[in-house]
Design a protein around this nucleic acid. Structure first.
Lengths: 193, 193
DNA sequence: GTCTATAGACGGATAGAC
DNA sequence: GTCTATCCGTCTATAGAC
């Protein structure tokens, strides 16, 4: 499989456009993301983007998949196996929170229905499902296997992150409650074996 | 202060418009809410709405305040004082969840940044702050006074509701975890007095 | 591959007749 | 108070020249 020079260059430009899209989303908000602005940020006019993407939805789709790929990389850096369960649980949740709060538009695109009328393509969605399956497997390694336990922990984690993102995106008012929440949760699950 | 017949009639029409707006939002989604459709649902044309509201933002503002007024009424039906703390906590959270899931657009307008670029006016926002202050007072009655405890419980509750609303709006997969979450939370707060 | 020009859709708001 | 007609802005997407 020989990737020609032209193909490489095209792929680079595609990534430049995605990076520009993230930047624009960061400045103006995800909902205000417009092809004109993305193009301007990369030194083009809007119609030129159609050389690289089929349209706006295709760009959003690529951003979505890009986000989940970034999350996979980010979570690879968390070594669960050397930690006690409570610390492992807290480490996972903290890493997730770090990632979400590092880019609010990325968080919104990946986890919230912030874009009315848009939803990821089945292919892009599959990427997220794959990650979440892996996450459930990580919880199983810690000993969280009951579906209700998983649901409860996901709700607690996402609740803390959502509150932090909505009310204090640069602070740690809810973030610092993560270790406590992890200990609380583990104590409870163990008292009901 | 004599409310004239004209004033009463005007107020009734305003409420008709709000009801129509909720109906349209329920059908098409909050983001697709358009003056034309609201007007049609109430038997008018869009410009006529300007007789009753200053514009779209004013309508959203009235809907927002309307929602919080409805929530106040709904929560007045929950009698906390006859219950044990864990049951009281669960009852409050369950009532909140019921309210949120009864109307997804209402939930989105009140609790989520579902409308890019829109935020309630200071007056409308004050209504929500007043309610939340009352809610914190209710928690204090149960013995939850530490700010960190309050934040944690709010995060847990909102996390469960958000998961339920996003993934299973008509079911109870997360809702049924509320009593367990309440017991877990109370056990934890009491072990750290 | 990039551009200009423009189509086509949508939605909020306003003017002015009735 | 309600209407018709219209303006204005925004945005995605396409046609066709270069």
């Amino acid at each position: 499989m020989s990737t020609s020079l032209a193909q490489r260059r095209r792929e680079r430009t595609r990534q430049d456009i995605l990076d520009a899209a993230w930047a624009v989303a960061g400045d103006d908000g995800l909902a205000a993301l417009a092809l004109r602005d993305i193009a301007a940020a990369v030194g083009m006019r809007a119609p030129s983007l159609y050389t690289y993407f089929d349209g706006k939805d295709a760009i959003l789709d690529a951003m979505f998949a890009d986000g989940w790929r970034q999350l996979s990389e980010h979570m690879d850096g968390v070594d669960v196996h050397t930690l006690a369960p409570a610390d492992a649980l807290a480490a996972i949740a903290t890493a997730m929170a770090e990632f979400c709060l590092a880019s609010l538009p990325r968080y919104q695109l990946m986890f919230t229905p912030a874009l009315p009328g848009w939803e990821p393509s089945p292919e892009a969605y599959a990427v997220s499902v794959q990650f979440l399956d892996d996450a459930v497997a990580s919880l199983a390694d810690i000993g969280i296997t009951d579906p209700g336990d998983v649901d409860l922990w996901v709700a607690i984690t996402s609740g803390l992150i959502a509150q932090q993102a909505a009310n204090d995106p640069t602070g740690d008012r809810w973030l610092r409650l993560v270790p406590r929440a992890a200990a609380m949760f583990l104590t409870e699950t163990r008292s009901h074996p």
